Amino acid sequence: MSSNTTSGVPPAPVLKFPFKYPSAKAPPAALSDTPLTPAASTPTDVAMTIDDEKFVLGVENVLKLSREDRARLFVGPEVTVQCEYQDLCTVPLRLLLAVSKPARDRYLDPESGRKIERLGMSGTNNAAPLKYLFGWVKETAKKRKCFALPSIGMAKDLKVIMVAQHHGMDNYVRSLINRHWATLHNDQLTFDILWAIHNADPTHTFSFWTALVRRISNDKLDGTMPDTEDMKDWEMRLPQLAAAVDANYKPRAEKKAAWEARQAAKLAKQAYKST
């Protein structure tokens, strides 16, 4: 049976959601380290003192803290992480405040009463990357030596990046951002790249989406769009991306054509004068 659609256009890849994200595991050496504290013995009813709060709210990067300072982030109440009202996991409030600026802003809002009981995000497709991200944050912060968030493939990484950026946690996915930003700007475009970014967040608020639209527009203007088999009919397979590219490309193409016409007229005039 043919894998093409009735129109003859190959369909976009099909992934079942939510993604099956693995737990973010530390390298073997780090996994052998004893955790900071046994989970069952971590006190959850300890209120923050003024000094505690000053320390927590002043953290710029949890990964750069000493192990002793990271241990202080596991004391106190837990926050339930939710997606579409489904409980995914919990994260210590202090740790959450240390890694997420939006969480700090919410905590400092006079109406919050210095409490956050739940952290939510919409979109059922965001549940798995959200759980994966905060699972890693807790795991790495407990180790003797922090470990970077592992790459699990471009499509899944981009979902994690989008979720992290939503929570102001860009610093903690910087290695993934750099890896895939380089791919987007330096490698030849493939349908897998287009689909991965389209699937992550097809809106102008996602930096990879706007960069992809610009990249395709540039390649079309330069005549360097790949004509490989996997890129055939990408516009029909990803119409939302095609529309965004079209809106960016058309005015630029018209401007380029007008400039080329002026240059041609100028050269023709110069040639006429020289005869």
Results as ranks from 00 to 15, higher is better:
Pro22Ser: 01
Ala164Asn: 07
Thr224Asn: 14
Trp195Ile: 03
Glu53Arg: 08
Val75Trp: 04
Gly153Asn: 06
Ser7Lys: 15
Val91Lys: 03
Leu15Ala: 05
Glu78Asp: 13
Lys115Met: 12
Gln86Asp: 12
Tyr249Ser: 00
Ser66Lys: 10
Tyr249Asn: 07
Pro43Ala: 06
Cys89Phe: 07
Ala196Asn: 02
Asn186Tyr: 05
Asp52Lys: 00
Ser2Gly: 11
Arg114His: 08
Ala265Ser: 09
Ser274Ile: 00
Leu238Pro: 10
Leu221Ser: 13
Tyr272Ala: 13
Ile152Leu: 04
Thr44Pro: 00
Ala242Ile: 14
Gly120Ser: 15
Ala196Tyr: 05
Lys145Ala: 11
Ala24Val: 01
Thr205Gln: 08
Leu95Phe: 03
Phe19Trp: 15
Pro77Arg: 05
Ala40Tyr: 02
Thr80Gly: 03
Thr80Ala: 13
Lys255Val: 00
Trp181Val: 00
Val79Tyr: 08
Lys255Thr: 10
Asn199Val: 01
Tyr272Val: 03
Thr90Ala: 14
Gln165Val: 05
Pro35Ser: 03
Ser112Met: 12
Asp246Tyr: 08
Cys83Lys: 01
Asp233Ser: 15
Met225Asp: 10
Gly223Leu: 11
Leu96His: 04
Thr34Cys: 08
Thr203Arg: 14
Thr224Trp: 11
Pro43Asn: 06
Glu260Tyr: 04
Gln240Phe: 06
Ala257Cys: 00
Pro110Lys: 02
Phe206Asn: 02
Ser217Phe: 04
Leu65Tyr: 00
Asn178Glu: 10
Ile216Leu: 04
Met225Ser: 08
Met169Asn: 07
Glu68Leu: 07
Thr210Asn: 03
Ser207Phe: 07
Lys255Trp: 01
Cys83Trp: 04
Ser175Gly: 00
Glu60Ile: 01
Val59Trp: 01
Ala244Val: 09
Ala265Trp: 00
Leu149Asp: 09
Gly168Trp: 05
Ala30Asp: 05
Leu238Met: 14
Asn125Phe: 09
Leu119Ser: 14
Gly123Val: 12
Asp222Trp: 04
Val9Asp: 08
Lys20Thr: 10
Ala271Thr: 02
Arg114Asn: 12
Asp109Cys: 14
Val160Tyr: 02
Ser41Pro: 00
Lys115Leu: 09
Trp136Cys: 05
Ala200Asp: 09
Asp109Leu: 11
Asp233Tyr: 15
Ala141Asn: 02
Glu260Phe: 08
Asp170Pro: 04
Val81His: 05
Ala268Gly: 05
Arg174His: 06
Leu119Gln: 12
Ala71Pro: 06
Thr190Lys: 13
Leu238His: 09
Phe147Ile: 06
Asp33Val: 02
Pro28Thr: 05
Trp195Asp: 14
Thr6Asn: 11
Asp109Arg: 04
Asp51Gly: 04
Met121Ser: 11
Ser151Pro: 11
Ala264Thr: 06
Pro239Asp: 07
Pro22Gly: 09
Asp192Tyr: 10
Asp157Asn: 01
Asp219Cys: 14
Val81Trp: 07
Thr44Gly: 13
Tyr172Thr: 08
Lys232Trp: 13
Trp136His: 02
Ala71Tyr: 04
Arg262Phe: 01
Leu73Gly: 01
Ala141Gly: 07
Thr228Cys: 13
Met236Trp: 08
Ala268Met: 10
Leu88Asn: 12
Asp246Trp: 10
Asn171Phe: 00
Gln270His: 03
Asn186Leu: 11
Thr37Pro: 04
Ala47Trp: 08
Thr5Ile: 01
